[in-house]
Structure formats: C-alpha cells, structure tokens
Design a protein around this nucleic acid. Structure first.
Lengths: 229, 229
DNA sequence: TAGGCGCTGATTGTATACGATTTGGCGCAC
DNA sequence: GTGCGCCAAATCGTATACAATCAGCGCCTA
C-alpha cells in the first residue's frame, strides 16, 4: 500500500510563472537558452505544455523564440530598454495619482509590509528577491488604483525592467534607495495625489537615468540551478 | 504535368492576423465562438497551429479561452472598456507630441493618403474597413514617433477598442468625424508638438465620452462568412 | 409532469510520433 | 595546417492519436 505521491503535473501557467520569477530575480540571465526538453524534465510535463509556457512568455516580452533555434531569455536592446522606461513614465505617475485617492489604511499598511519585506530580503543578502519585491511595489500601486488592464501591463513592463537592470545597470545598489517608495506611501497616507504623482515621475526619471551602457559579461547559467530556489 | 497548386498552408501568425482583421472590421462580433475544427477547415491546417493562433489572440486580449469550453471573441466589460480608453489617454498624447517633432513630409503624405483611404472606404459603405483604418491611424502615429513598444501595445489597444465600439457605442457614425485626425496631420506638418498633443487628448476624450451602455443584440454570425472578405 | 440521472456525440486538452532544420565534428583534399 | 563539405546528433515544428470533459437529450421515477 503506497501513498500516491504522483505530484499533479504543473500547468503551463505555473511553469511560466516560475520562469518569470527566475528571470525577475536574475537567477536566469538575459540570453540564457531555454531548451524545451530540459524544461520538460524539470517540470515533468510534455513538450506541448512547455511550448505553451514559452510562447506565453514570448508574448510578454520576456523570451525570444527564434524559429528552429529555440527559446532564449530576452536581451532587450538599449532602445527597447529606454522604451520600457518611457512607457512606464507615461503610465505610472497617473497610477500613483489615482492610487493616492483610493488608498485605504489597509492598502497603506500592505505597502509598508511590502517595503519591510524588501528590506528584510536585502538584509538576508537576497538581492534578487529584493529586486523582485521592489518591482512588484509598482504593480501593487496599479492594483490599488483599481486599474486591472494597466496592472497587467505594468507587471510585464516591470518584469522586462528586471532584464534591463541585469543588462545595463552599473550601480545596482542604487536600488536600495527606498526613499521614493517611502515618499509614495506617505503621500498615499495623506491622500496627496499630486505629490504622489510627482514623486513617481521623479522616481522613474531616476531609474531611467541609470540606464547606462555596460557590456554584459553574463556567464551561462545552468537552467536547472536557476530554477532551484 | 500539373502546376503545383498546393497553397502554402497558413502560419499561426497569418491566421491570427486574419482573425484580428475580422474582429476589427466587425465581421466577427464579441462573444462569437471560434471552434478549433472550424478554423482548421477554413485555413487547412492542423489544430496545433490553430491553437497557437487562438492563444496568441488571447494574450492580446481579443479572445477569451474558457477551459474545456473553447475560444470566444472577447466581450469586454464596461469597466474594461473604460480602462482601455484610459490607457490610451495616458499614452497617445505623448506619442502625438513625439510624432509631431519627428514627422517628415513623407510621413505627412502617408497619413493624408491613409485618411483618404478611410474616406474612400466610407464612400463605398465599407464601414468596417473604415473603422479599421481609423484605428490604424493611431498606430501609425506611434510608428512615426519611432516607439516600437508602444506601437505594438497600441495596436492591441486599438483592436480591443473595435470590440468596445461594437458593444457599447450608440452613434457609430460619429466615427466619420475626421476633423481630429485632420487636425493632427496639420499639427504634424507644422511641427506643432503641443498642439498635436492637445488635439489627441481631446480626441480620445471624445471617444471615451461616447462609451455608453447599450445592450448588445449581436446575432450569431457564421465564422466562415465572417472570414470571407 | 417536473426533476434528476446517465448515456452519447461533440469538442477541447495532452502526449507522442514523425519530419524538418540546425549544429558541431570529423575526415578529406588542397 | 587550413578550409570545405558531408554526416550524425540534437533540437525544434507539426500532425495526429488518444484521453478528458462538456452539452444535449431521452428516460426513468416520484
């Protein structure tokens, strides 16, 4: 009599999510190859499912699929990188404005917890996880603004931003400057919509400023290792 | 000796494009079911390819796939509809600004031809085609602004706007008011970036204003007919 | 007759087999 | 020794077979 240990095989969405997290935390670097069979082995599913995941990630701009060549973690060009941050600069200040008007005390508390979690991750030297949380902070603002479409869109842009940071940022520790996020939370608490909008505008400008040519010496990373959290 | 008439079977992208056009021109109405086998028959490809197309359209927000139920042309809620136009309002004025600064005489001529084509389509009473061209006008502005990311994004939002128009607009003839588009082209010609931005802002506000509750008496349409241009 | 049950055809979901393309290496000629 | 070309292995692309699920309908029962 054996306990049935057969783990429910992962769905395409679950695989895409795990790959996204691995990209977001820099466990998977831009340009890394994603061989279908390898992903199959890791998640114990057929290639059909894996291909669904990879195509899904391609649509989100995180993966580039070259016909008959395979899937690779996307490597945004400098122009694409600028476009991502320009798009965010168009969208996010308005979200900050709307979020400030809608934020409940519960929302403010949630964001404070969120910032604390990021700080904790940094204290544990989990830089990748801190980076992921820092990006998610922006997505949460769109959620508080109650704008699902932009929340989804922003999640994609933020994920791509992680790729860009991996490729083009020199001083990554600048990320640990959490004053902008703190300022946003304060503005939310005071329902200072205009203030929140301005802070967000400046914050994104800061991020854009740090875009910086840098050759990417990213060594190849084992796919299996990258997924092993 | 027979001439090889074997038509190169369509690719997933081609099928997605044709479906998109059918949606854009209202030959396919919101809620219409897209049975896989039926699409297979029409394009003479295997379900593998058709499923790729449908998933691709799902990612673009044009199709909703219900597990074990099938794929349907998306039916945006009123909230989603508002969000689409709100997002466009955040993005497009900036594109108009940038396009005004970059537009060459060739670009201006292109847009004039584009508007003429729309007018011709209306004259031929091809309302759907005129609608598609009218939407594409906005995408072309992003192209002129040389912003690929937003060009892609906008193409999706414009396509979804066609769904919204099919569902929620009362006075569709209001679309034939081409004064805004004309004003934009003039502003481009004069490199009046601020003017272009203002016109675009007002134009999108106009569009948003026409969002209007209306029950959708859309009758079911044969998929094959909808694709027969 | 209304309601529930189960069967059956239709439709979608997944795995797998097979074909096409690429890549890397080996050998041969120069 | 170098370069070219060919072959084999690896990998991806597509079609198809099979499994799971759903919707409609008739039948049975209270």
């Amino acid at each position: 009599m054996t306990i049935n240990l057969k783990t429910k095989s992962a769905t395409a969405d679950e695989i895409a999510l795990q790959l996204t997290e691995a990209i977001h935390t820099h466990r998977l670097q831009p340009g890394a190859k994603l061989r279908e069979d390898e992903v199959c082995d890791i998640f114990q599913v057929s290639r059909t499912i894996v291909r669904q995941s990879l195509h899904s990630l391609q649509h989100k701009g995180l993966v580039t699929i070259l016909r008959n060549k395979g899937a690779f973690v996307a490597k945004p060009t400098l122009k694409e990188a600028r476009e991502v941050f320009e798009a965010r600069s168009l969208i996010e200040p308005a979200m900050a404005h709307a979020a400030a008007l809608r934020a409940t005390p519960k929302d403010v508390a949630f964001l404070e917890d969120h910032m604390q979690a990021e700080k904790d991750a940094l204290a544990r030297e989990e830089v990748g996880e801190a980076l992921r949380l820092s990006g998610d902070f922006h997505v949460q603002i769109a959620r508080i603004a109650d704008h699902s479409l932009i929340e989804t869109l922003l999640a994609q842009l933020v994920a791509r931003s992680a790729l860009i940071i991996a490729l083009y940022w020199r001083r990554r520790n600048a990320l640990s400057d959490s004053s902008s996020h703190m300022g946003l939370v304060n503005a939310f608490r005071n329902k200072d919509a205009d203030g929140a909008e301005e802070i967000m505008k400046g914050h994104l400008l800061d991020l854009l400023m740090q875009l910086d040519l840098r050759d990417s010496p990213s060594g190849p990373v084992s796919l299996k290792d990258a997924l092993r959290k």
